[in-house]
Design a binder for these strands. Structure first.
Length: 481
RNA sequence: GGCCCUAUCGUCUAACGGCUAGGACAGCGCCCUUUCACGGCGUAAAUCGGGGUUCGAUUCCCCGUGGGGUCACCA
């Protein structure tokens, strides 16, 4: 029974995908995987005016990066191909003819201006405009140039079950004679998605709450077609970062692939997105893809809207970056021309400090640049005693370091460096002149040229004894000069 | 405006009608550390308002308020 589950994600090619759409796709996909079912990617391109060029490959790239894979769909075919609605017009036409024959559909006889006049009249009387009040007395045959309308039944109260929200209902005003086929020959969403869901055997439909109020349309159309409606599951909205409104492209929602460019890993995106609107009922915060599939449950999907927290995303992204092997980290970090050997050595440092790959790249060019090139030292900085508790720098401290570093083996661990150098710093501390800082600050600055850097022992280990000696000598030279 | 959905810390959320309303992120403090970061420990922070049902409401019901959605030849 579980193996019969079929879900789908059916975006229209109107541009990029934002996290709201991706999350809906994620839940539909998780549900299919959880139940050993199939997941379909269908493209709903029935509005040729709003279509944006190249949307389809962009959507495919987005979902692929994100980590969702589909069993049938636009680019890989399947038993119900094609998965592009504009290539299925004959099918919608056949269903439309069936509806006409059964008396469930009729051609709209009004011109645009006539319809406009009727609508204005109703508005003038402060009445809601209902097309069904203006149905033509005599039905003329449909020539395919007029819009085809659904003859909506009058039902006092629609009620249905929602897998997330339970009992939902709507009054009879929720449904009017809506258009099935537009005058340009393309079906509307209302007809096309239902025909496809029937043909493709979709069992569970996940979608946003903006579809709740049009569900009566869908139910009555299923009934007119003599088909059983699938189960519905309504997803909560994802709200914009600052406002309370639904996240939308208009309000600056980001392209999913922008997150890739900013250095987020898809594991983190999936983890975070799954948790906006769903939770496992436990305290677990980190979920791998497989763990999500195992834990996902529609009954624990939230009913109210939620904000997407990019700060939390940073934390979770850092977690998933740290789970990568050093090789994967380098391969996925897009570090182009960095010195491979130094880069390899720097990875543990990057894993500790960077929350995104972009941050990691910035660090390599910024505070970690000293790993790759000699820093430019500045005499004023060398001797400055700012902030107040800074000890300043003495030639004797640097020379003491020099002696110890020269004795280090060429391949040395951070721990050994620390064991070797700390006694000098501790001795300085006993003298009470600036404490350990009297040694450690000069070392940090000589090696990094910066006031903020990784700890100096790590720097020595990464740079090697020879380079360390060279940099300390450079600092001494500046002090003397 | 009609209809529909919804309401727990700043944010994401947990809590068969029953412990001092729990966790995470962010915040704050302390420790570690001459810096930053990491890490450890700790701390502050919430049930929208009013009725009702009940021995007992975060939980169930009603009203109000706030927020959202929808009323297309868009999906």
């Amino acid at each position: 029974m579980n193996s019969k589950v079929v879900t789908r994600f059916a975006p229209s090619p109107t541009g990029f995908m934002h996290i709201g759409g991706v999350r809906t796709a994620l839940y539909a996909w998780l549900f299919a995987r959880k139940h050993g079912g199939r997941f379909i990617l269908r493209i709903e391109d029935t509005d040729k005016e709003r279509e944006v060029a190249n949307s389809i490959p962009h959507i495919i790239e987005s979902l692929t990066w994100f980590g969702i894979e589909w069993d049938e769909g636009i680019d890989r075919g399947g038993p119900h191909a094609p998965y592009l609605q504009s290539k299925r017009l004959d099918l919608y036409r056949a269903y439309a003819e069936k509806l006409i024959a059964a008396g469930h559909a009729y051609p709209d006889p009004y011109s645009e201006s006539e319809l406009e006049a009727l609508r204005n009249e109703a508005v003038g009387k402060k009445q809601p405009f209902l097309f069904r009040d203006h149905r033509p007395a005599k039905l003329s045959p449909w020539d395919g140039r007029q819009p085809l309308r659904f003859r909506a039944p009058r039902i006092a109260r629609y009620e249905w079950n929602d897998l997330v929200r339970g009992r939902l209902s709507a009054g009879e005003e929720a449904i009017d004679d809506f258009i099935l086929i537009k005058s340009d020959g393309y079906p509307t969403y209302n007809l096309a998605h239902i025909v496809d869901d029937i043909e493709m055997g979709v069992t569970h439909v996940m979608r946003g709450e903006e579809f709740i109020s049009s569900t009566p349309k869908f139910l009555s159309l299923y009934e007119a077609l003599g088909a059983t409606a699938p189960a519905f599951a309504t997803m909560p909205v994802i709200l914009g970062p600052d406002g309370k409104k639904k996240l939308s492209k208009r309000d600056g929602a980001k392209d999913l692939l922008d997150y890739r460019a900013e250095g987020y890993v898809p594991e983190a995106m999936m983890n975070v997105l799954a948790l906006v609107g769903w939770n496992p009922g436990t305290d677990q915060e980190f979920f791998s893809k497989d763990e999500l599939i195992a834990a996902f449950d529609l009954s624990r999907v939230q009913v109210s809207g939620a904000h997407f927290d990019e700060v939390k995303l940073l934390t979770i992204n850092q977690h998933w970056m740290r789970t990568l092997s050093d090789e994967e980290f380098i391969a996925r970090g897009d570090f182009h021309d960095a010195d491979r050997e130094k880069l390899r050595a720097a990875v543990p440092l990057l894993k500790e400090r960077a929350r995104t790959f972009r941050e990691a790249r910035d660090m390599l060019a910024g505070e970690l640049a000293c790993l790759f090139e000699k820093p430019a030292l500045n005499r004023g900085k060398l001797v400055a005693k700012e902030p107040a508790d800074r000890p300043g720098m003495t030639k004797s401290a640097l020379e003491g370091l020099l002696g110890l570093v020269q004795a280090l083996p060429s391949d040395v661990s951070t721990g050994t460096v620390k064991e070797t150098l700390m006694p000098l710093a501790d001795a300085e501390e006993k003298k009470g002149k600036g404490g350990r800082g009297a040694v450690l600050w000069p070392l940090r600055y000589a090696l990094s040229g910066q006031e903020r850097s990784p700890d100096p022992f790590t720097l020595v280990a990464l740079l090697g004894a020879a380079e360390t000696v060279s940099r300390i000598r450079a600092a001494i030279a500046i002090l003397e000069g």
